[in-house]
C-alpha cells in the first residue's frame, strides 16, 4: 500500500480536483493520496469528488489555512 503526496497549495478551483483525479489514476486499490490545499472550496469539493468516484476520504484536517485530505483508492 503506497502513499503519494500531492501539493495543491495556492491552486484554485478546478485545478486541485483535476490534479487529484490525475494522481488517483496512477494509484492502485488501497493506496492513499495525501493532498494539501488552500482553495476555500477544497473540503466540499474533495468530499463530493470521493462520493462521486467511489473512493474514500480517510482523514481531513485544517490548520493555519492549509487543508490536508487523505484519500484512499477504492
Amino acid at each position: 500500500m503506497a502513499n503519494v503526496d500531492l501539493d495543491c497549495g495556492g491552486l484554485s478551483c478546478p485545478v486541485p480536483i483535476v490534479r487529484i483525479s490525475r494522481a488517483m489514476k496512477e494509484l492502485a486499490s488501497g493506496d492513499t493520496l495525501t493532498v494539501t490545499a488552500s482553495d476555500p472550496s477544497f473540503k466540499a469539493d474533495v468530499e463530493a469528488w470521493v462520493r462521486k468516484m467511489g473512493h474514500h476520504l480517510d482523514a481531513f484536517s485544517e490548520a493555519d489555512g492549509s487543508q490536508t485530505a487523505v484519500l484512499r483508492h477504492a
Binding site: V18, S21, W49
Partner: peptide, 10 residues
C-alpha cells in the same frame, strides 16, 4: 471550469 471539473469527476 465546469467542463474540466466534469472530466475530473470521471
Amino acid at each position: 471550469t465546469i467542463a474540466s471539473g466534469a472530466v475530473a469527476m470521471g
